[in-house]
């Protein structure tokens, strides 16, 4: 990852964080709100592969952890695992179907919520498992599924530059579709 790509990634994370805090937090149903930041590692997994997605998940998670009163580093841990998983799974797929990206975003967002809750419980935040997780899963997964295609395009653009474009295209599952 070049410096240029790293700067682009940081800018993209900051912009999504701002969107999350200005729009995302105001959309609230059954006490839950969308989480656009987790879409970054998921999109990176689909656009660039597991390694890049894990890095994106770590960076986005750290940024999110700065602004939420939960254990610092928990989002980073959960999201780098989710990003890696998405990259690994989609990398092995060769068929192109229109619903694949929304479907992957839907499933991966749900997994990220459950993984966050379980990891939190392991770290002594047992109350995470007693929340209305179904509402949280729905509020995170559905908007992310709808935004999966533009998010993947945006992240692919942010992660690719003149030097890495060739390398990314050779590993990017999205480009093979």
């Amino acid at each position: 990852m070049t410096l240029r790509v790293a700067i682009r990634l940081l800018v993209l994370t900051a912009v999504v964080l701002l969107v999350q805090w200005t729009i995302g937090l105001d959309v609230r149903i059954a006490g839950a709100h969308p989480d656009f930041l987790v879409l970054l590692p998921i999109a990176a997994g689909m656009a660039a592969g597991p390694s890049e997605a894990a890095i994106v998940g770590f960076v986005a998670g750290m940024a999110a952890d700065l602004l939420v009163p939960t254990p610092f580093g928990l989002s980073a841990l959960a999201w780098c695992l989710v990003g890696f998983g998405v990259g690994a799974v989609t990398g092995s797929l060769t068929r192109q179907v229109w619903w694949l990206r929304p479907g992957v975003a839907l499933a991966a967002s749900a997994v990220s919520v459950m993984l966050y809750a379980v990891l939190g419980a392991v770290l002594g935040q047992g109350q995470f498992l007693h929340l209305d997780l179904l509402a949280v899963v729905l509020m995170v997964s559905v908007p992310n599924a709808l935004l999966a295609a533009p998010a993947t395009a945006l992240v692919r653009r942010a992660l690719a530059d003149a030097e890495t474009r060739g390398r990314l295209s050779s590993v990017a599952p999205a480009r093979r579709w």
């Binding site: 597991p50 390694s51 894990a54 890095i55 998940g57 770590f58 998670g61 254990p71 610092f72 580093g73 928990l74 980073a76 841990l77 780098c80 695992l81 890696f84 770290l123």
Partner: peptide, 13 residues
């Protein structure tokens, strides 16, 4: 890469 990121996260937590 994944192992390093997980280790950093766990250390921070």
């Amino acid at each position: 890469t994944l192992v390093v990121l997980v280790l950093i996260s766990v250390s921070v937590i």
